[in-house]
């Protein structure tokens, strides 16, 4: 099973690398990293396409639509597009490119897929309410010492730990 190619980087070294990227982002652009914001842009532009008037009148969508700017041409969308490319490059270099559904052998593929969709939906919902996900709110927020960052981080990891027992079959 194990081949030499798919070893991961030492986690502390990877953390250092990630920290340097984050620092560069702050130094160059004054903002940290993000991910869920880009997904929101996709949703907003989708809704906008289906019905512009509806999006315009909604308190939520209208915040992200302005006449001179297309939601898909935003900083975060480009950044997440980069994540896609960067992840692919890394996977290619380390020989980890292959279509695979990762799950515990104790559950069926169908269950894993449903769990992924439900988990994604919860994360998507929560990231909107909490104004950012693990990257935008927790990681970037912690680096600038924002209270919101630390609170969000503790809420995310605390809940995940608290619920871990009930979902153990999914993973182990």
């Amino acid at each position: 099973m194990e081949n030499k190619g798919n070893k991961y980087m030492n986690p502390y070294l990877a953390g250092l690398l990630l920290g340097v990227v984050l620092l560069a982002s702050f130094y160059l652009t004054g903002r940290g990293l993000g991910a869920s914001g880009a997904m929101k842009s996709v949703v907003v532009s989708g809704v906008d396409k289906v019905s512009h008037d509806y999006a315009e009148n909604s308190h939520f969508y209208s915040k992200y639509i302005s006449n001179d700017q297309k939601p898909l041409r935003s900083w975060l969308v480009l950044e997440v597009f980069g994540v896609l490319i960067g992840g692919f490059i890394s996977g290619a270099l380390s020989g980890r490119l292959n279509l695979k559904l990762e799950k515990s052998p104790k559950i069926t593929n169908r269950k894993r897929i449903w769990m992924a969709i439900i988990g994604g939906a919860l994360f998507g919902f929560g990231s909107q309410l909490g104004r950012g996900c693990t990257s935008g709110a927790a990681l970037s927020g912690m680096a600038v010492m924002s209270l919101a960052g630390y609170v969000t981080m503790m809420a995310i990891f605390g809940t995940a730990f608290a619920l871990a027992y009930f979902f153990r079959k999914n993973w182990i």
Binding site: L33, G34, A35, S36, M39, V80, V83, E102, M115, A116, I117, I118, G119, G120, A121, L122, F123, G124, F125, G126, S127, Q128, L129, G130, R131, C133, T134, S135, A137, A148, V151, T152, M153, M154, A155, I156, F157, G158, T159, A160, A162, L163, A164, F167, N170, W171
Partner: peptide, 21 residues
């Protein structure tokens, strides 16, 4: 919203196994 949003994200994390990034 930071706390409640974080709790919902935490649930999403353990159920879905990822975060958006």
């Amino acid at each position: 919203s930071a706390i409640i949003g974080g709790v919902i994200m935490g649930a999403g994390f353990i159920i879905g196994g990822f975060c958006p990034g």
